Amino acid sequence: MAKHKIYTMSFASVYPHYIKKAERKGRTKSEVDEIIRWLTGYNQEEIEAQLEKETDFETFIADAPEMNDSRHLIKGVICGVRVEEIEEPTMQEIRYLDKLIDELAKGKKMEKILRQA
């Protein structure tokens, strides 16, 4: 079975879309970065290095220092699919990130997005 296209896309090619989506709704790049750090365990320098290397999305997720244990609290629909029902682990991690960025763009407070309250 062929890999989904998103796996081979560079994280650097998708990242500007996350920023643009957030900024269109009055949110910031720093908030997007905070979400990425929270979910993946990368620090800011590591994120920048991954962007510079143009790491593919599958590797970006696989090499994440420590995926947040609270990520399983992320629920809802993204791309017409419930994130909690996605069976393929890497795709689920990618869709968790998509869902968090979507919540940011919809105006949710960061404490709620980061499952702190």
Rank of each mutant, 00 (worst) to 15 (best):
M67P: 04
E103F: 05
E54L: 07
H72L: 15
G41V: 11
Q44W: 13
Y7E: 12
A2V: 09
K112N: 10
E66K: 15
V32P: 07
I47N: 10
A64C: 13
K25F: 11
G80D: 04
E23C: 10
N43G: 10
G76H: 03
F57V: 11
A62I: 04
I113Q: 01
A12Y: 08
K108R: 13
L100A: 14
K25D: 10
F11I: 05
A62G: 01
R95D: 00
Q92W: 10
V32W: 04
E54Q: 15
Q44T: 14
L73W: 07
S13M: 08
I47K: 13
E34Q: 11
Q116F: 00
H4Y: 08
S30C: 08
I101E: 02
E48W: 12
A22I: 02
E48Y: 10
A12I: 03
L114Y: 03
T8Q: 04
E84W: 00
T8W: 00
T55W: 06
D56T: 04
I78L: 02
S10T: 13
H17K: 07
R71I: 10
R95T: 06
L97W: 10
A2Q: 12
R115T: 03
P16W: 05
E48G: 09
E87R: 10
R27D: 08
F11W: 05
V77M: 01
K112I: 13
I78D: 01
G80V: 04
Y42R: 12
T28H: 08
E45R: 15
K112R: 10
I47A: 11
P65L: 09
N68D: 15
K29R: 13
S13N: 09
W38K: 11
E66Q: 14
E66S: 13
F57H: 07
L114R: 00
G76Y: 03
E34V: 02
K106R: 13
Q116D: 01
Y15I: 01
I19S: 02
S13L: 07
S70F: 08
E45K: 15
E66T: 13
E31D: 03
T55E: 12
F57S: 06
I94L: 04
A117S: 09
E85Y: 05
T28F: 07
E45Q: 15
Q44N: 15
I113D: 02
L97D: 08
T28N: 07
L104I: 05
Y42H: 07
E54I: 04
K99E: 09
E46M: 13
V77C: 03
Q92C: 08
A49S: 15
K21G: 00
V77K: 14
T8E: 07
D98T: 06
E23R: 12
G26P: 10
N68R: 14
T55M: 14
K109R: 10
Q92N: 02
F57Q: 07
K112W: 11
H72T: 15
D102A: 01
T59E: 03
I61W: 11
D63L: 07
E111Q: 08
E66V: 10
T90K: 14
I86M: 03
S30N: 04
D33K: 12
E45M: 12
S10M: 05
M1V: 07
L51K: 13
G26H: 06
K106Y: 09
Q44F: 13
R71K: 14
A105D: 04
I6L: 05
K53G: 10
M67K: 14
L100H: 05
R71E: 12
R71G: 04
R37G: 00
L114H: 06
I47C: 13
L100E: 06
R82Y: 05
M9R: 11
E23I: 00
R24E: 13
N68Y: 09
I101Y: 02
P89Y: 05
